[in-house]
Simulated scan of single mutants.
Amino acid sequence: MTTPQQQDPTADQFLMGGGGAPTAKFPSIGASISGRITEKPVVEQQRDIKDGSLKFWKDGGKMMQLVVTVQTDQRDPSIEEDDGRRRIFVKGAMKNSIADAVRAVGARGLEVGGILTVTYTHDGQKTNPAFDPPKQYSAQYIAAAVAELNTPDPTPQQQYMPQAPAPQQYAQPAPAPVPQIPGLTAEQIQAAMANPATAALLQQQQAAAAAGHAPAPAAPADVPQF
């Protein structure tokens, strides 16, 4: 019987080196991984965590999993040049939760640019005393087109602020001309104009003089002497 060979690296892994981004971890209930999908998800055969051998079902069928790489804001000091990318190995209960999340938004599958969030919510029923109970997950997915629309522009745009209209300037009315009355000073004329009784008489005489019907008005007899 031949030993299964290790899978060949992807084109990007072969070109850039390395075995891909670190594995996403869910150490305790409530742990979550969220980020934008950075490369096309791939399907591969599962491997035994102890020796790396390929895994098969009892009937000989391959045990498959989906590998999704997302860009997160996580940084692990123990990982040299950690850029925050994480690989999520989708299988079992997690696969069902992610499939439901994709269907909920009307998408046909995971795509580059979409945003995937996976959260370890609780433990399932323990069926084998030799193993831990299966982890249960919830998932949310935002399709790539929607995620692109909701991504803020990295270059802040100057917001237009409407300018308040400048206060309108109103011309001040020109002061009424002071009539010239022989025998009275300007101060006396202003005092006479301040008196309604004498002001009306002076205005009538001034209007008649301007029309040429009467000589220039003289000081009325009832104008008080100042």
Results as ranks from 00 to 15, higher is better:
G124Q: 09
L184G: 09
T121G: 05
Q168P: 10
L116H: 08
Q157D: 14
P129G: 06
T121F: 08
Q225G: 05
P9D: 05
Q190P: 03
F56Q: 06
G18P: 09
L66G: 05
R85Y: 03
F226T: 13
A166V: 08
Q172D: 01
Q71M: 15
A218L: 14
M1T: 15
I189Y: 05
A216Y: 00
A143D: 13
L15T: 01
V118I: 08
I79L: 05
Q6N: 15
M64N: 07
D82P: 01
Q180F: 04
A147G: 07
A174I: 07
A209P: 05
A192I: 05
P154A: 09
P129V: 12
A194V: 01
D83R: 04
P156H: 05
L110W: 04
M161C: 00
T127W: 06
V42T: 12
R86C: 00
A191E: 02
D222M: 03
D123K: 03
G60W: 03
I142D: 10
Y120C: 10
D8E: 12
A143N: 10
M94A: 12
T151C: 12
T119Y: 00
L149A: 15
E148Y: 04
T3M: 07
V102S: 07
K135R: 14
V146P: 10
A186R: 11
P215G: 14
A197K: 15
T2V: 13
P173T: 12
E81K: 15
L54R: 14
E44F: 06
T117A: 00
V90D: 10
A164S: 01
M63W: 04
P165D: 04
V118G: 03
F226Q: 15
P77Y: 06
Q190L: 08
A199P: 06
S53Y: 07
V43P: 01
P179N: 09
G212I: 00
T117E: 14
T198A: 09
T185F: 00
Q225D: 00
L149Y: 14
P167H: 06
Q180E: 07
A104S: 13
D8M: 09
Q204A: 15
Y137A: 11
D100K: 13
R47A: 12
A24C: 11
T117M: 09
P129H: 03
F56T: 03
D76T: 13
T117Q: 08
A218K: 03
L110Q: 12
K40H: 13
A200G: 08
Q13I: 01
I181E: 06
G109L: 05
V146Q: 14
A145Y: 07
L54G: 09
G92I: 01
T38M: 13
E111F: 02
I189H: 06
K55Q: 14
I88M: 14
A210M: 06
D83F: 13
P175R: 09
Q136Y: 01
S97Q: 10
P41Q: 02
Y170C: 01
A144R: 11
A171F: 04
F131H: 12
S53Q: 15
V105L: 04
A21T: 10
S28M: 09
T155F: 02
L110H: 04
T198Q: 08
Q158N: 01
V223C: 10
R108F: 09
L110K: 10
A221S: 02
K135I: 10
A101K: 08
K40L: 12
A31R: 01
V70M: 04
